[in-house]
Nucleic acid binder design. Structure first.
Ligand code: MN
Ligand code: MN
Ligand code: ZN
Ligand code: ZN
Lengths: 127, 127
DNA sequence: TTATCAATGATAATGGCTATCATTCTGATG
DNA sequence: CATCAGAATGATAGCCATTATCATTGATAA
């Protein structure tokens, strides 16, 4: 079992109390703002440990990893390439078709990552 | 128009003559094996230039970019996490559903990336 | 209390990629 | 040709997210 140290608990709480997709440095900044003095290496290690034990989940976006609550059903992401806004969605048809594709190709599917890129309505309205 | 120097032509040929998803260092190695002495920076710059002009295409996989022929219709990828084998697929249902999802969320879709992870049949048979 | 072992923090190292800059090519132009 | 300008190249330094190292601190159990 994972040892939920104070530091890790704080990290976990921050993630659990939000609906945000955190990157490591951003989370470290948020912790610092709240008065916690946690080394950046500890943040990275804490995130890895929490994820390894299923307490949070993550996905790789471009060059950085994003962390979010694990207490959500599986979903994929829509990202506005203008403002960075991230929306979540679930589409059963897509999920089902992916299973079919994998079966057709003789793959035993273990996961997938789908990211849709676009410009969100807020950004479009700004024009 | 892009200047197709000898170096860039060689890089382009290698990619076009294969069905491979090349990473930059791997391609540099292949070039060296064939007797071409091309600096690694030139390989990176050549790949970027070729892609910028639509002569090759790429997608980001984990921490490295993969380059492939541009002379293929849009497709997504299935990756064996055991042996690294990459298969391609096209699924019109998935493509259509993505458009719907984007529309529902008010996004003007510009692209997507779908990677399915799994264990390929060759790897499964080895057990 | 003591021994053990994990967690932490500061910081060095890693790895893919880009920037810099001096040098080499290329391809008009006179 | 000779010259010149701009692009391409190569060696290498720099960048940046993340991981590794290692000395120190902390928690737990005997
Ligand atoms: Mn999410
Ligand atoms: Mn492909
Ligand atoms: Zn936006
Ligand atoms: Zn395989």
């Amino acid at each position: 079992m994972i040892k939920l140290t104070q530091h890790r608990q704080v990290i976990l709480n921050l993630i659990n109390e939000s609906n945000h997709h955190w990157e490591a440095e951003e989370l470290a900044r948020a912790l610092a703002e709240r008065g916690y003095r946690i080394g950046i290496a500890t943040v990275y290690r804490g995130l890895a440990a929490l994820e390894a034990h299923g307490l949070i989940s993550s996905f790789q976006l471009a060059d950085r990893k994003r962390y979010e609550r694990a207490s959500k059903a599986h979903h994929d992401h829509l990202i506005c390439t203008r403002c960075g806004r991230i929306e979540e969605f679930v589409n059963e048809d897509i999920e089902r078709e992916q299973d079919l594709v994998a079966a057709q190709k003789g793959f035993s599917i273990t996961g997938h990552q789908l990211v849709i890129f676009g410009i969100c309505n807020r950004c479009i309205d700004k024009n």
